[in-house]
Amino acid sequence: MKLKGTYAMPAPRDEVWAALLDPAVLARTLPGCKSLQETGPDEYAMQMSLVISSVKGLFEGKVRIMDQQPPESYRIEVEGRGKIGFVNGGGAFLLKDAGDVTDIDYEGEVKVGGMIASVGQRLMDMTSKMMIKRFFTALEDEITERE
């Protein structure tokens, strides 16, 4: 499944960059993130508890941040496994100055397997859109509250 979009973050680009790459911020803003531990340079181990309606899924996985071009762009690779399936994804983030806001262009692909792939297709698109929205909203709260 391909995901693509732009979020207009009402903050300067440097600040958005710093927040996006701050593990502490990510731990607070990534939907369902239980823990995010640095395991190496730009590599993290993550625990996520995904809750959507009555569905609950615990995932353990890895996050890698690559190709950093501060404060403009980076790539991210995510890998997670849980009882209800597994998720592999990769995406590119591009930060652009757009006056009062910073436009975050994101584009990526998510591959799911196991139970969630074979029974959850109908809800995949809406769920990922919702997760992205939750993440950016939380990130915006985080950035704007900081000021």
Partner: peptide
């Protein structure tokens, strides 16, 4: 099936 060999419509809902 997707290119990862995952069966995508594996229930009577799909």
């Amino acid at each position: 099936y997707d290119e990862e060999g995952q069966l995508l419509n594996g229930t009577m809902m799909d």
